[in-house]
Design a protein around this nucleic acid. Structure first.
Lengths: 196, 196
DNA sequence: CGAACAGTAAACCGATCGGTTTCCATAAGC
DNA sequence: GCTTATGGAAACCGATCGGTTTACTGTTCG
């Protein structure tokens, strides 16, 4: 039923799904119809379609992070917590219907880096890098800043590979992330450089 | 002047530029106007806009590879030839106006992996992986297949980072590719594993 | 000269675009 | 009961969508 949540919630949900599935060029008519909301309501809840794009992207953030990040109660070593992100990415891709990281895909479609949706995308990409960074600091990595960015690049590279349907990821994101951490001395034993 | 080349060439050039700059949703009217070609001519040169998308992507291939791949006469070690790709990517991004790898961006926008344009995108992504693979075989890498894919992922990850304007690449693609090759024993001396 | 061809400009088609407005049904507050 | 606010349905706006067609201008070939 579409009638349980508020019009705003229904719109954000439908927008998150349809902008991802069909691209940001989908019409507001189709969007409102899918959400069971009138255009009139939409335009008094959001200033424009562009604003809806940005807000729907932002509203997906928490669920997106819950999906990828390990739980706070997961007290395995930082390296394993990082690899969890890549394992879950692999699982999401394996489900099929993968159309890329929602944030990168939207930024690609919008073209304009100053579009409010692009700003939100940049923000959430930084959140992933920040997660890696925090974990790498816990692990005592020598250069957590650089390695966190490198891991983010591997994440988005694996995503790109999945979008072009080059083949199943088959754990290549996980192994690449592991190789980079190995090369940087972030071992399973954790705190490698501090212990060394 | 737009009148020197044939209408077909003008259309392919304009399409390559405008589909990249504005996305595949740009209208055929704007496209034909930019190319100085009538819609009638366009539709007797190409069956549909979708076909033009695919053909313009394919026509960009040679120039794209010339831009990124080192020259055949460049007889430096394979590792250096591979790193050249990442250095040139860095330079392209630094020029500004970077909107992602044309093939990945188009595949993202098209959504449908069976769209003729997506097929072309897949093909050229494979060409990059094939280049890495050839060089890695020359370098005697242990697992050239896996490493070639990992390098392609780093390439696309660096590209994604540039699209979301996270910050200048600052050689991070190069250093990540180098780290992966180091970890796999592909050293500057070349043929490392065969000499070892 | 005259026929045939290549190609542009522009009208045209129904459909859809982002956005606004009108109308009406419901429901809560007094 | 009467009012006010919420919000859906749908008409409406000018512009544009992918695609077709007509009409006209060159040019080339015989």
């Amino acid at each position: 039923m579409t009638s349980s949540a508020t019009p705003r919630e229904r719109l954000l949900d439908a927008a998150g799904e349809l902008f991802y599935r069909d691209g940001v060029n989908i019409g507001v008519d189709a969007l409102c119809k899918a959400a069971g909301v009138s255009k009139k309501s939409m335009y008094q809840l959001f200033r424009s379609k562009d604003e809806l794009i940005a807000e729907s992207l932002a509203s997906r953030g928490p669920a997106y992070q819950t999906l990828l990040h390990p739980d706070a109660s997961d007290d395995r070593p930082a390296r394993d917590r990082i690899l969890t992100v890549f394992e879950r990415q692999d699982a999401v891709v394996a489900e099929g219907n993968f159309l890329g990281c929602p944030y990168v895909s939207t930024a690609v479609e919008l073209k304009n880096p100053e579009h409010p949706g692009s700003v939100v995308a940049r923000h959430f990409k930084q959140q992933l890098t920040d997660f890696f960074h925090r974990e790498l600091v816990k692990a005592g990595a020598d250069d957590p800043g650089t390695l966190a960015i490198q891991l983010t690049m591997v994440f988005d590279g694996a995503s790109a590979r999945a979008v072009v349907r080059a083949q199943p990821l088959a754990g290549l994101g996980v192994s690449t992330a592991a190789a980079l951490m190995d090369a940087a001395g972030v071992r399973s034993g954790e705190l490698a450089s501090q212990l060394g």
